[in-house]
Each structure stands twice: as structure tokens, then as C-alpha cells.
Nucleic acid binder design. Structure first.
Lengths: 222, 222
DNA sequence: GCGAAGGTGTAATAGGCATTACACCCTTGC
DNA sequence: GCAAGGGTGTAATGCCTATTACACCTTCGC
């Protein structure tokens, strides 16, 4: 029963291979990266790659699904911290921005998209574990607010869609233009989320009825 | 001087090859499509492909940039037809929806994204001729309205960005999920554009002060 | 009909890379 | 120390496909 040592050793190998593969895939794309490249960077041996992952596709799956975490936990937390819809949405937006700003995430999205032709199931599975899950989490938020009597225009489903669109479109643009066309500043994000909040009819409903009904400042036209 | 006949003949060949290549690239992706596939479908000969396009990459460029038309003309027309911002934007939205619903457009976007790693210039050039041009056209619209005294919240630049995001994000989702996750109905589009109009503070400013100020039907909360 | 310009078809070249096979070395538990 | 099992390194296999070369056939103006 020499399980533990073997496991550890193999495990270290596995880690090194996955890390090397992820960075190489991100740099060069999947097709252009040869297994030799990966072995050269990770150390170890080609034979090990086949022993652990079966083949190149198997390795890709491990790499992608390890990194393809949904942001749902972050969304729950942002909600749990409390505050008005506006405050929560700004927090969520910050979290999503950080997540999608990661160049490795963009690179993986590129790979998934290019493989989505040959392997629809793979891509769809990625979609379900990321975008669809984010959507569901966000939808829950709007449902909560709706249930607690906060007025909004549009269904939770539609609002969640629109909110995420702001981020997917940025990832999309980044994937094509390699960041040439995009300003990822915090100010831009703030403006966009404020825009969303107006569209959703969520402009601060003062739960405390102390303040004025939100005098729209003309400062928005930057 | 036998220019015309030669030209015509070559031209017919060229057309057939581009058409075959475009449909095959859309079906299978660029890497998976061999020049043999293309010649088999187009008829003619491999040698002709090399004579006309130089190599496989040259063929791809022709295919992509022929199809990658900007929607700017459509945007100008939608504006020229007149009407309130709301009316114009709904028209533009319809046009963009039609454009981006074309599966071949989505397929080409997939290809451009996957090649954007190895050939940044190619992808960027695509971006400039499509998204960036659409953005510029749309921005002009908002500038016109702004100049003519119609109040709006946000800069023309930002508004144009936000408007296009609704479509880019759909293309992005389609590219990954192959349409599994998306409803492209006209109703959804209408709701989204109404959302945008609220966010932009453009909710019908009656230029003609005859009618009622556009009674917003509560049908929005579908 | 004829000759030439230009397409066509096919076979050869060449290189790349996933995948497999195999002999060697090193760690590990006794 | 030592035997065994599991990693390692490398070479071989095999397939695929871009690209080239070349001999043949069509078309078109005359």
C-alpha cells in the first residue's frame, strides 16, 4: 500500500503539467502548442502526460475546467454584505471586472470559442459552468429584491442578462482586439453600472425616506 | 489584349473558391478545413487557389474581409428615415439583430477570435473594420441628437458603447454555446432597447408636442 | 482549325506533431 | 542495500496537409 507517496509524486507532476499547459495555451493557443512545448516547460516526460491525461484533449479539459470558475460565490457575498441594489450591483460589477480582466481568462475563452466548432459539447459545458451559472446567481438577486417589494422594470431574467452583457461584450472585444479598443477603468465601469441602474428603474429607492428623490446631477455627461 | 475573357474566367473561379471556402470555414473552422475540401466543393484546381490567393492565409483574408461589412450604412439609413431617438434606435437594433443573427457571421467571428492569437494584426484589422466602425457611426447619431438639444445621460461615446454591447454579447454567447442559450426574439430585443433608452435618459421626448407623452405600457414586466 | 495563354489534375515533397514503444534510472518501503 | 514500480528520455511510427512541380487539356481571339 504505497499510495500516499505515489499519489504525491504524480500529483506534483500533474500540477506542473497543468500550469505549464495553461500558460502556454494562453500564450500561443491550443493548436499551436505542442506537447513537447509543455513537457519542456513543465519538466518531466511526455509519457507522463499520456499516463495522466490520456491525450492532448484530456489535458485541455483539465486546464479549462480548473480555471473556469463561476463568479457565483462572489455574487452571493456581494449580496450578503447588504446595501441598496445600487450598492450591491456596484460591488458585483467590481468583482466581475476583476475576474474578466485576467488575461488568462480571456485566452481560455478564445480557446473555448475556437474549439466550439469541433466540440460543441465541450463549449456548451463551459458555457453552463460559467455564464449560465453567473446568470442564475444574479437572477436570484433580482428575485430577492423583487420579492421584498423593490420596484424594478423588467424581469429578473432579463435584468440579469443585461447586466452580464456589459462584461461579456468586453471579454469579446478583448478576445478580438487584444485590448486595443478597450478602457477598463473603474470610472467607465461606474458609469456603465449607473446606466444599468437607471435602465432597470432601480435608481436609489431610499429605503430610509430621508433624502430627496435622487436629484439627477448633470455631472454624468462626462 | 485578351484581358476581358481571362479576367472573367479567373473571376468566376475566384468567386466559386471564396464561396466554397466561406461555407466550409463556417462549418468546420479554418484549421480543420483543408484546401482539398475547398477545391472539391468549388471545382477547379488546387493550383488555381495558389495562383489567385497565394496561400491558405490569403484565402482566409479574402473570405473574412468580404463578409466583414460594417453596419454603418444601415445605421445612417435608419437615422435618415427620421423619428425620435427611440424610433431610430429600435430600427438600428432590428438591423443589427438581423446582421448578427447570420450564422456565417458568428462562424467568422469564431475564426477571427481563434486566429487573433497568432495574428494580432489580422484580428485588429477586423475589429477596426467592423465593431469600431459601427461604434463611430452610432456615436455620430448621438452627437447629432445632443447637438439638436435632446437631453441624454452619458457621452455619445459611452452610449454607443453600451448600445453595441447588447449585440456583441449575444454574438459572443452564440459563438460559445451555438445558440443553445439564447432567445433572439423580436420581443426580447424590444425590451432590451427600451431598457437602453431608459438608461440613456432618452425616454420619448415628444418633439411634436401634440400627442400624449408616450404612455409607457406596463407590458414591460413580461 | 490554330496557337498560345491560362486552367486542371495529379503526384511528389516536406515538415510538423500526436501518439506509441521501449529501455533506463531513481525513488521508496523493507 | 535491494528489489520493484513508477517516472523519464528518446526514438520511431504514422498520419495529415500545406505547398510545389509538371504534364495535359480548354478556351478564345484570329
Amino acid at each position: 500500500m504505497t499510495e500516499l507517496p505515489d499519489f504525491c509524486r504524480l500529483d506534483r507532476r500533474k500540477r506542473a503539467i497543468i500550469d505549464a499547459a495553461r500558460s502556454l495555451f494562453a500564450e500561443q493557443g491550443y493548436e499551436r502548442t505542442t506537447l513537447k512545448d509543455i513537457v519542456d516547460r513543465a519538466g518531466g516526460s511526455l509519457a507522463t502526460v499520456y499516463k495522466v491525461f490520456g491525450n492532448k484533449d484530456g489535458l485541455l479539459e483539465e486546464v479549462v475546467f480548473e480555471k473556469a470558475a463561476s463568479a457565483d460565490v462572489m455574487i452571493q457575498q456581494a449580496f450578503a454584505q447588504g446595501g441598496s441594489p445600487s450598492e450591491v450591483l456596484h460591488r458585483v460589477g467590481d468583482g466581475l471586472r476583476t475576474h474578466f480582466l485576467d488575461p488568462e481568462v480571456v485566452a481560455l475563452v478564445r480557446i473555448v470559442i475556437s474549439r466550439s466548432v469541433e466540440d460543441v459539447d465541450f463549449a456548451r459545458s463551459f458555457y453552463e459552468r460559467t455564464a449560465q451559472r453567473d446568470h442564475a446567481s444574479l437572477k436570484t438577486l433580482f428575485e430577492h429584491w423583487q420579492a421584498s417589494g423593490i420596484p424594478m422594470i423588467g424581469t429578473p431574467d432579463m435584468l440579469s442578462d443585461m447586466f452580464l452583457d456589459m462584461f461579456f461584450s468586453d471579454v469579446h472585444t478583448d478576445a478580438i482586439s487584444h485590448g486595443a479598443g478597450l478602457d477598463h477603468s473603474r470610472e467607465r465601469l461606474r458609469d456603465r453600472i449607473d446606466f444599468f441602474i437607471r435602465g432597470a428603474g432601480l435608481s436609489d429607492q431610499p429605503l430610509d425616506k430621508g433624502g430627496t428623490p435622487e436629484m439627477k446631477s448633470p455631472a454624468n455627461s462626462r
